[in-house]
Design a binder for these strands. Structure first.
Lengths: 210, 210
DNA sequence: CCTACCGATCGGTAGG
DNA sequence: CCTACCGATCGGTAGG
């Protein structure tokens, strides 16, 4: 049974497959530890073929980040559409962000300090995508500050918030006791200074990462 | 003028130099992107010589992390010595941690997801060192929760706190407008829900990382 | 998108 | 701690 060959028009998305595979591998193993052969294997290509779609491994990373960030941004906008209450909107932003970060099929490259592998031009593109991503966050924080719900919406607040969310990549286990909803609640509660819901007291000396 | 050769006894610390150089390089470039030649260069050795002191590049990473963590722990204990007020103690923990992370000459490996490059045995050693590091933090959070200063000292709180601090590695610039003291204040204020000190209102759309 | 391949680099070792 | 070196791997390319 010979392999089909007339499918060129039916499967135009090898590029997208490559991006998803690359993103997942970069997240799991890191950019440098991932070989272009790993990526090719993941989509059933031979070692040289990814270079038919992308000029270089770096371009693969840059594109995965920019498109991943933009996809996350779109998901964010869709999720908060029509929500006028700022506190509720923050809650949805946080939960949606964590979903993208921790349970996305493959998207979630948007984090990582892997950016350091890239040159200045690529970093500028990524920074622009991330700037877009941050707009609804800052707007919501500004609203909350104006309403007095949080004490300040100064720049460090947003950065600290992203920090506590993004760092969860290093310790959160989807098979653990903490659900994503609970994690989102904890983060929002910490930010708003409210009471924690549904988390129990803890022992010290666990066995995870910083 | 021939090189000195009788100094063997006077310079027993090539090992420590290697560790400091490796730690800095691992932090700056990542484990995989750092070559053993980079490390050798950094301390003026030839390419094969680091292997006289360490069995492998992985052992260099593991040792740098464990010893860096323990050094940070010692610094923590020294800094909080005698401080009975829990809120004040938290403040000092945060500021000391940020100092280690962001302004330490070379120590500050203690972070990073570079751990993923290591095998299970090495990860256990690092987890143990990190558990030690976390003890004074959890104890302080427990005190604050008991006093009602924070709503909960459940496990996610500590992890979220470390997240917001450690993530600063990705965006904090020591030559920027924000001092380490101000950053520490912001983080503590966010956790305690108090008022921010000395930070000004912000525009959205900055140009940094997640 | 495959085959075949190259130049460069890298972690690590032998043998002083 | 150096010299000399090796085997393996890796990003990328030519040429269909």
């Amino acid at each position: 049974m010979p392999r089909r060959k007339a499918e060129t028009g039916l499967e135009p998305n090898r590029r997208a497959e490559l991006l998803r595979a690359a993103a997942r591998l970069f997240v799991d193993k890191g950019f440098d530890a991932t070989t272009t052969r790993d990526i090719a294997d993941a989509v059933g290509m031979r070692s040289g073929s990814p270079f038919y779609h992308f000029r270089s491994k770096h371009e693969l990373l840059k594109t995965a980040m920019v498109e991943g960030l933009d996809a996350g941004y779109a998901r964010l906008l869709a999720a908060i559409d029509g929500i006028t209450d700022a506190e509720q909107r923050l809650r949805v932003l946080v939960r949606t962000h964590l979903g993208t970060l921790l349970e996305g099929e493959c998207h979630s490259p948007m984090l990582l300090g892997e950016t350091r592998a890239l040159d200045a031009a690529a970093r500028v593109e990524i920074a622009a995508a991330f700037d877009r991503y941050q707009v609804p966050w800052q707007a919501t924080l500004d609203e909350l500050a104006q309403a007095g719900t949080i004490a300040s919406a100064a720049s460090p607040v947003r950065l600290l918030l992203f920090g506590m969310l993004n760092w969860s990549k290093h310790w959160y286990r989807s098979d653990g006791k903490l659900s994503l909803d609970e994690l989102a609640d904890s983060a929002v509660a910490l930010l708003l200074g409210g009471m924690m819901t549904s988390t129990r007291p803890s022992r010290h000396v666990p066995a995870t990462e910083p």
